[in-house]
Computed example of a mutant assay.
Amino acid sequence: MGATAGDPQAPALEDAVQQRLAMTLREIAWAIHRRAPERADVGPIPTTEIALLKQVVDVPGSTVGELARALGLQQSNTSAALRSLGDRGLVERATSAEDRRVVRVWATPNGVAEHEAIAEAWTTDVVRAIGALPADEREALESVAPALAHVRELLRQPPLVG
């Protein structure tokens, strides 16, 4: 018989459920990232560069430091990935008009198109997988979508302590 509210086993059971959920979400994220589409016109793009391209598209005009902080990367790794994306014609850098010491990054039209194609490929796979679920499981996923969106926002903040 399982633990109930007020039962001393309840916190341990709750922790175990949260651990299983966290592991499942991690495995889903990894399964999605392994499906990174190889685009004929640019070849395979490492997942770090895909994440960086998404961030540049989502927050155009970011600095290298801002991009590094947003993704939890070292600035040197971010610069190297941006060079690779630039060599592929997916991003461009420009010196800030306000402060010539600052370089800002934008996605090129090809970069936006590539980002959209990758997002579409990933979304299509996820939609297919969800569509293959029984109706009750699809409804269960729909009911937790707001909570998952909240978890996503919390994970975008600096690491949680405690």
Rank of each mutant, 00 (worst) to 15 (best):
L73P: 00
S62A: 15
G43P: 05
R100W: 01
A135T: 14
V56C: 01
K54G: 05
A70G: 15
E120I: 06
V161P: 01
L90H: 05
L148T: 02
V127C: 12
D58E: 15
E49A: 09
E66A: 12
R39I: 15
V91G: 07
A5R: 14
D7E: 13
L154F: 06
A145K: 03
T48N: 12
G86V: 00
P134T: 04
T47W: 03
V17M: 08
A113R: 14
R156F: 00
A3L: 09
T48K: 12
R128T: 13
P159C: 00
P11L: 13
Q157C: 00
Q75S: 13
V126Y: 03
V103P: 06
I45S: 02
L73G: 01
A97C: 00
I130K: 10
V151I: 15
V91N: 02
A145N: 03
A40S: 15
L160D: 00
R101I: 01
V102E: 07
I50E: 05
T123S: 14
T63E: 08
E137N: 08
T95E: 14
L85G: 07
R100S: 12
M1D: 09
Q9M: 08
A140K: 09
M23Q: 12
E137G: 04
G2Y: 14
P109R: 12
E137L: 14
E139P: 04
T24H: 09
P44K: 10
L85Q: 05
I130P: 03
R156E: 04
D41S: 15
A81E: 02
V103C: 00
A117W: 07
V105A: 07
R35F: 04
A147P: 04
V126C: 06
V161I: 14
A149D: 08
A117Y: 06
G72M: 02
Q55C: 04
G131F: 09
V59E: 07
A3H: 13
R138K: 09
L52M: 08
A10K: 10
P134D: 10
E66N: 03
A119C: 09
T78Q: 02
D87F: 00
R88Y: 02
D87A: 08
T123G: 15
R156T: 01
A29N: 08
R100C: 01
R93W: 03
L67G: 11
